[in-house]
Design a protein around this nucleic acid. Structure first.
Length: 637
DNA sequence: GTTAGGG
DNA sequence: CCCTAAC
């Protein structure tokens, strides 16, 4: 795992570099910047409720309303830094801030569309196979840090949908219903193993990677998206999952939330940082690739996508490919059971995609916008936490994926009414409960995870160094979660066990209780959506204050130290972000209040910004002149 | 890996 | 917030 270097920075008594770096004046800029037609990924919203049917209609109709609640555990934290500097700080104070962040979880309506297409054609006449699992680009539902549930209710759906067909699951904007009723019917040769069943969902590679990238190093030869042109198509099947690009407006800002636990735990961070950087690297490349691809397609000049031809270092290519390789779907095709005679088929129909009922605890002084974002965040967290499908036969989980359906007694003649599907955490598949929390995942115990699943969630939920330890926790009612990490595990497990014991549906269920449950979208996914632009997270006023405070002490040009001092536990603020924010602050301070946008920054703070900027600019100038004088002296001597 | 600066 | 040259 990546270990953060220079951990000594920012710690008490550490001697920070004395002088800010002299800005290099001759840094060439090359900026043929492309148009920002960001291909924002889709966030998939797909929970699968399932009922297995054999040759007859399923009449089960147990509404699966699931309860969970969201709580914020906020914790004040003070940061005191003592920094020594050759250059006297503008303001020599120990920073002791309590920054009350806005808890800014930004989620935006996403439209996601997952299409499971059944090849209803019987071209070979004997083995109708599931042939397509098609998702729109940019969807990513993968291994996640934890699953929100084990418990399942039998999904209820509307009947009467033709057996053969593909239906999309679409989660429109936030104002829309969170329930979508769908049916996905699958025909599965009896001799197909149960893994194939899993692949119905778990192998849906909801990744926004351009296909070229995916297949660049693929040996499988199986396209990421297989669309049989001969398929029957339904409008739903081809429903485009369009989504708005990022907007400056927060309300409309696109992006999924990354409500992670705070990086309060120091040992939590190094991996985080490293993976985040890797992610950014990939994101950069892939965004570019995606844009190129889109441009190429739109210009109708043929494929101009040459992802690997871009100026990517070989080492990066290697890593990149390795990453993608790991992201290949587990399986896409059912294995036809050829040469074994005519086999009876098991027809599976999964009905009703239902978003569980959620209960959210949110402070009264929270804004409606933050409430919306929180709701969206909870939902997306559930979805994107990375789900895998489990199969329950008469309440008993079938663990052996290598079993055939027949061996698993999922076949004609068996009591198939008692077969259910569950959604489980991909990352927790080796655990009995399938639930993990980020803290677990980030520690050595998480080694068993699939490598990519170790990519840390990009966005911690905490706001600033002194911000809340904003954690939202899954909780099984009536237990209440304490805000310390230690207690969370057991609760997760409790939740998981209880849930899985009662799993009867495929929808996430925490508890049917109406008591508020705390759901923990602690981390949306260990696998950030590759190629996705980071969500816009405006600096809160406390963050700005912290930044100003730090810059006053450290000066401009030492952004890494500023980061360490003021935003050490806030991984979603990089030092580049801080530098950028400072830039905008300086700009904001220099324009008239009427021209300013966004959350107003107190004039007093802006005055400090200008003062600090002027001071440190002067310091830099003095350093430059002093250096020049020194050079001149040495050269003349 | 950091910083600076254009976009 | 992204990107990248320069260091």
């Amino acid at each position: 795992m990546v270990v953060r270097k220079r951990l000594d920075y920012g710690s008490r008594g550490h001697q920070v570099p004395a002088m800010p770096r002299v800005p290099s004046s001759a840094r060439g800029k090359r900026s043929a910047r492309r148009k920002k037609d960001e291909m924002t990924p889709f966030d998939l919203l797909a929970t699968v409720a399932g009922t297995l049917l054999v040759d007859h209609e399923n009449s089960s109709n147990a509404p699966g309303i699931n309860a969970a609640a969201l709580t914020y555990a906020r914790k004040r934290k003070s940061v005191k830094a003592e920094l020594c500097d050759d250059v006297p700080p503008l303001k020599s104070v120990a920073v002791e801030n309590c920054i009350v962040g806005s808890g800014g979880v930004c989620a935006s309506p996403r439209q996601a569309n997952i299409c499971l297409a059944e090849n209803s054609s019987t071209r070979n006449g004997t083995d109708p196979v599931l042939e397509s699992l098609t998702v729109k680009p940019n969807m990513l539902v993968r291994d996640s840090l934890f699953s929100c549930t084990k418990s399942c209710n039998r999904g209820h759906g509307v009947g009467g949908i033709p057996e053969c067909g593909a239906y999309g699951v679409c989660l429109p904007g936030t104002s829309r219903s969170l329930e979508a009723t769908n049916q996905v019917q699958v025909q599965q040769p009896v001799d197909g193993d149960t893994t194939a069943l899993y692949s119905l969902v778990s192998s849906v590679d909801l990744d926004g990677r351009p296909p070229a990238l995916v297949s660049s190093d693929s040996s499988s030869g199986v396209p990421l998206c297989i669309h049989d042109k001969d398929h029957k198509t339904s409008p739903l099947f081809h429903a485009e999952a369009r989504h708005a690009a990022d907007r400056d407006d927060d309300e409309n800002s696109s992006g999924c939330t990354h409500p992670c636990t705070t990086g309060n735990n120091k040992s939590y961070m190094p991996q985080y940082t490293g993976d985040s950087r890797i992610r950014k690297m990939f994101a950069s490349k892939i965004r570019k690739a995606a844009r190129n691809k889109m441009c190429g397609e739109m210009s109708n000049k043929g494929s101009k996508l040459n992802l690997c031809a871009k100026k990517i270092s070989t080492s990066r290519q290697r890593v990149q490919r390795a990453m993608f390789k790991r992201q290949k779907p587990v399986r896409r095709h059912f294995t036809p059971s050829s040469a074994k005679g005519i086999l009876s088929e098991v027809k599976l129909r999964i009905k009703s995609f239902t978003i569980p009922e959620l209960f959210i605890e949110i402070p009264e002084n929270a804004t409606v916008g933050s409430l919306k974002r929180t709701v969206m965040d909870v939902v997306t967290s559930i979805i994107e936490s990375g789900l895998r499908v489990g199969v329950l036969l008469q309440g008993k989980s079938i663990q052996d994926d290598s079993k055939t359906l027949r061996q698993a007694r999922i076949c004609h003649g068996e009591n198939l009414e008692n077969i259910d599907f569950t959604l489980e955490c991909e990352a927790g598949q080796n655990s009995s409960h399938g639930v993990r929390i980020p803290e677990e995942m980030d520690f050595p115990g998480a080694d068993a995870m699939e490598p990519l699943a170790m990519v840390k969630c990009e966005e911690p939920f905490s706001e600033t160094k002194a911000g809340y330890n904003s954690q939202q926790r899954v909780q099984a009612s009536p237990n209440r979660v304490q805000s310390e990490h230690g207690s969370v595990h057991s609760l997760f497990e409790t939740t998981a066990h209880e849930a899985s014991a009662s799993s009867q549906a495929i929808v996430p269920v925490a508890s049917p209780s109406s008591e508020a449950l705390a759901i923990v979208p602690v981390c949306k996914s260990k696998r950030p959506v590759i190629g996705q632009r980071r969500i816009r997270r405006p600096f809160s006023l406390p963050e700005v204050e912290a930044l100003v405070e730090a810059v006053e002490q450290l000066g401009t040009g030492r952004w890494r130290d500023v980061k360490m001092l003021a935003f050490d536990n806030t991984d979603h603020r990089t030092y580049v972000d801080l530098k950028d924010k400072w830039k905008t602050l300086v700009h904001t301070a220099s324009i008239s209040p009427q021209q300013r946008r966004g959350e107003p920054v107190p004039q007093g703070l802006l005055d400090r910004v200008l003062a600090a900027q002027a001071y440190w600019s002067q310091q830099q100038q003095q350093q430059i002149s002093g250096k020049a004088a020194l050079q001149g002296c040495s050269s003349s001597c």
